[in-house]
Amino acid sequence: MTFIDRQVSVKPPRFTPYQLTPWFFAAPALVLLFVFLILPFALAFVFSFTDQRLIGNDELGTSFVGVRNYTRLFEDDSFWAALRNNFFFVCVVAPLQSLSALGLALLVNQALAGTRFFRTIYFMPVATTMAVVAVVWSLLYSPDAGVINRLVGLLSFGAVGPQDWLRDPALVMPAVMVLSIWQGVGFQMLVFLAGLQSISGDLYEAAKLDGATPWKQFRYITLPMLKNTTIFVLVTTTIQAFQLFTQVQIIQASGASAPVDSFRTMVMLMVHEGFGNGKIGYASGVSVVFFVIVLTVSLVQRIVLREERAVQ
C-alpha cells in the first residue's frame, strides 16, 4: 500500500466555550452597528422605492413606485444645487483645512516654550459643539455690529465696507467655509502632529550633515514620510465635508435671508424633504444617493492606501 492509498483520518478541532469569548466582547458594538447603521439604511433603501409618508394615511396607504423617486431626484433643481454646494464646499475646505493643519502641526512641533499651550488653544474649537460655534459665528458675521466686518474694515483701511455675509448668496457659503475650517482644523493638526513625531530625528540629522536646507528637509523627508497621514486626513476631511449640515441649518435658523439653494446641502435637503415636507420615500432616495457618494470616497481611500502600501 502506497502513501497515497492510505486514508488519513483528521479529527475535527474540538469546540470550546473560549472560542465564543471574542464574539461576546464584539456583541455590543455589532448590535449598535446593526440597529443604528445597517437597519436604518436597509429601511431607507426599501422606502426609496415607495411613496412612504412621515404621517401615515390609512386611506392612501403606502404604494410601490419603482424608481420614480430617483427619476424625480435627478430632475430636481434643488438636488443639483445641494450637490453643487457640497462639492464646492469639499473642494475648498478639504485642501485648505489640511494645509492649515499641516502648517499648525509644523509650528507646534518645534522645541519651543509654550507649544503645549498653543496645541490646547488650537484644539479647543474641536471640543466645542458645532451648534455653539455656528451661533457665535453668526453673531460675528452680523452686518451691523459684527466683529468680522470691523476687522475687514480695519485691515482694508475702510476701503471695504460692511458685508452682509449671511444674506448675500455669493458670501454665505464662503462664510460657512471659514467657520468650518476654524472649528475642525485642530483635529487634523493633531493627526499631522502624530505623524511628524513618528519621523526619526536621525533622518534630519543626516540631511543637515549633507547640507540640506530646511526647505529640502521638508520636501524630501517630511512630505514623503507623511504620505499615509496626508491621505488619511484628506479623505476623512472630505467625508466630513460631505456631511455638512449643522452649520448651514443653524445659520438659516439665525435669520439668514440668502436664497436657500445658495447654501443648501445634501443632508439639509434630505432633512427638509423627510421631516419638513413629510416625504419619507423621496428623502430616502436622497439618503441612498448620499450613501453611494460617501461609499465611493471610502473605496477611493482604500484603493489609494493599498497602492501606497504596495509601493512601500
Rank of each mutant, 00 (worst) to 15 (best):
residue 273 E to L: 06
residue 32 L to G: 12
residue 300 V to R: 13
residue 105 A to L: 03
residue 233 V to F: 04
residue 238 T to E: 00
residue 293 I to F: 06
residue 129 T to I: 13
residue 225 M to P: 01
residue 128 T to M: 11
residue 32 L to F: 12
residue 139 L to Q: 14
residue 251 I to M: 00
residue 24 F to T: 14
residue 230 T to G: 06
residue 193 L to Y: 00
residue 139 L to V: 15
residue 215 W to V: 10
residue 53 R to E: 11
residue 152 V to C: 07
residue 258 A to R: 00
residue 285 G to A: 15
residue 206 A to H: 09
residue 31 V to Y: 14
residue 246 T to K: 03
residue 36 F to S: 15
residue 97 Q to R: 08
residue 276 G to Q: 04
residue 227 K to A: 11
residue 70 Y to G: 05
residue 93 V to N: 03
residue 257 S to C: 13
residue 299 L to R: 10
residue 246 T to P: 05
residue 71 T to F: 15
residue 280 I to C: 06
residue 100 S to Y: 08
residue 251 I to Q: 00
residue 163 Q to V: 09
residue 151 L to K: 05
residue 174 P to F: 06
residue 47 F to K: 04
residue 165 W to V: 01
residue 296 T to H: 15
residue 168 D to C: 06
residue 113 A to D: 13
residue 271 V to S: 08
residue 25 F to M: 10
residue 59 E to H: 14
residue 196 L to F: 05
residue 111 A to E: 14
residue 247 Q to Y: 01
residue 259 P to R: 08
residue 19 Q to W: 10
residue 122 Y to P: 00
residue 175 A to E: 03
residue 222 T to W: 04
residue 172 V to D: 02
residue 120 T to L: 13
residue 109 N to L: 07
residue 288 V to P: 02
residue 285 G to L: 05
residue 38 I to S: 09
residue 78 S to R: 06
residue 289 V to M: 06
residue 140 L to E: 04
residue 296 T to C: 14
residue 268 M to V: 00
residue 131 A to W: 10
residue 190 L to K: 02
residue 63 S to W: 12
residue 235 V to F: 08
residue 283 A to L: 02
residue 71 T to Y: 13
residue 292 V to Y: 12
residue 285 G to P: 01
residue 134 A to H: 00
residue 91 C to I: 10
residue 171 L to H: 01
residue 261 D to V: 07
residue 192 F to P: 01
residue 61 G to Y: 12
residue 202 D to K: 09
residue 181 I to D: 02
residue 253 A to C: 13
residue 121 I to W: 06
residue 307 E to N: 15
residue 179 L to N: 02
residue 122 Y to F: 14
residue 147 V to C: 07
residue 229 T to N: 08
residue 75 E to V: 14
residue 160 V to W: 07
